[in-house]
Amino acid sequence: MSRPPVSSTPGVTGPRAAEAKSLDRRDRAWWFDFGARAAVFVGGMSAILFIAAIFVFIGTQGLDFAIHRLSWSEFLFGTHWEPTVEPPRYGALPLIAGTAWITVVAMLVSAPLAFGAAVYVAEFARGKQREWLKIFIELLAAIPSVVWGVIGLHVMKPIIQHVFDVQIGLNVLNAGVILGLMAAPIITTIAEDALKAVPDTYREAAEAMGATRWQVIYRVVLPHARPGLSAAVLLGIGRAFGETIAVLMASGHRLMIPHSVFDSAATITATIAAELGEAAKGSDHYQVLFVLGLLLFLITFVINLTADWIVRGGRRRA
């Protein structure tokens, strides 16, 4: 097939050439756009820089010990965390298990609560009521964690002892419930944003067919908002996972693997907080706490990547 050549030939003059040139002239708006893009690029990249810097800091603090003296198999699978006795034992499994238990309980508590609240606020609450609810939820998110710790110590503890008739009130259940309550407002706020971002035309189209409110929410709104909801849970997990002081107060901080929600437990974060102050700078004990920090860092990283993968999978199917 022969086709006529495009008529633009170099050297053409006249109004048309001027016109074509204006498409290549970079005006002020173009340069401003260029500059703005460069600026936000730097902003975005700085995140990577900070992460890398923190990683390097944590890594180098524990590097000498991690390479030369730490037994990784004992660290990951050893069941005794006894850094101050002779000989010291650095088995982090109780801390890993404690963190996992408490995080799971926290999610079981917060996810239903938060999603319920988010759906109510986004889909049902109207006008003033909605405004007030949102204010309260944000207030809830702003309560300092030490206050939650005190609630764990003095409110949750007797309740658990009484209701479940157990000896120990500071345990996985206590810490999990406290963390769950702490994470719930954050999950609610983000989940509510995700629900509100679903265009009203979708709701109208479905409701016009006679779908009930619940059917609309379940079949149209939630699937559309799924990536946002996953992100909400992810941030909630991050909150529960990284929380330190409240969990230190409510968990009982017992350095052993918990076997039920009524056992006391210790988390990675609480252990670092509790022991870093008394470990001599540069000692093995000091360094192993940084290795713990590195472990925390890596787990968070894996959780984030997994969630990201889930979110992207959802988009592909959508």
């Binding site: 050439a17 498409l23 005006d27």
Partner: peptide
């Protein structure tokens, strides 16, 4: 081509 200029390669897309 728009006004003789290949749109794929214009240097100022906004223009």
């Amino acid at each position: 081509c728009f006004a003789g200029r290949d749109v794929a390669t214009v240097r100022n897309l906004y223009a």
